[in-house]
């Protein structure tokens, strides 16, 4: 393990500095992950500020937390906002904010309404009524983006099936 437990990442961490409970501790999360392979749900609270780049051992804590989130997703534990984000991009080609907020609301994972209201006020100020209450709109590139998703997902499926097949052959004791 490269990390020598100095805690610089945690001292610099934006979220650790807001979190009064003291539970959010990237150093400890990484120790548990490296030593016990334990994933902490807290990794979803990372603010993506990259302050932990100052790591003297160049462990890149931000990348370790990203790896933890990717592991959760692989295990099928996908937070509602991630699902809403990915589905919006897949269907609209872009992160259409109206579509994204609607999906979030539907999933019950809603952010603070006062923020949504002030955001709407801000949009009204910038764009006028007709565009502020915009209906979700697909980008002209939406078709290409969906095809890219299908192409990768198709390849992943083939790869997964091949892996499963070789595993079952190995389990049956047949030489490959």
């Amino acid at each position: 393990m490269k990390c020598y437990q100095c805690g610089t990442c945690t001292a610099d961490c934006t979220y650790a500095n807001i979190d009064e409970s003291g539970n959010f501790n990237p150093r400890r999360m990484m120790l548990d992950y490296f030593e016990k392979g334990k994933l902490s749900e807290l990794c979803w609270l990372c603010a993506e500020c990259f302050k932990c780049y100052r790591c003297p051992r160049d462990v890149k804590p931000y990348a370790v937390l990203a790896e933890m989130r990717a592991e959760f997703i692989k295990k099928g534990k996908v937070p509602a906002y991630v699902k809403a984000f990915v589905e919006t991009v897949k269907n609209y080609g872009e992160l259409d904010e109206t579509a994204f907020f609607l999906k979030l609301m539907k999933s019950g994972n809603m952010m603070d309404m006062s923020i949504v209201i002030s955001s709407l006020k801000n949009t009204l100020k910038n764009r006028g009524i007709s565009k502020a209450i915009a209906l979700p709109k697909k980008s002209p590139c939406a078709g290409e983006v969906s095809r890219i998703f299908s192409a990768v997902e198709g390849k992943d499926k083939v790869k997964l099936e091949a892996e499963e097949k070789s595993r079952s052959i190995a389990a049956a004791g047949v030489p490959a």
Partner: peptide
């Protein structure tokens, strides 16, 4: 990073 963590190849 959201799609990156969801599926790197996409």
């Amino acid at each position: 990073h959201i799609v990156e963590e969801y599926n790197k190849n996409i």
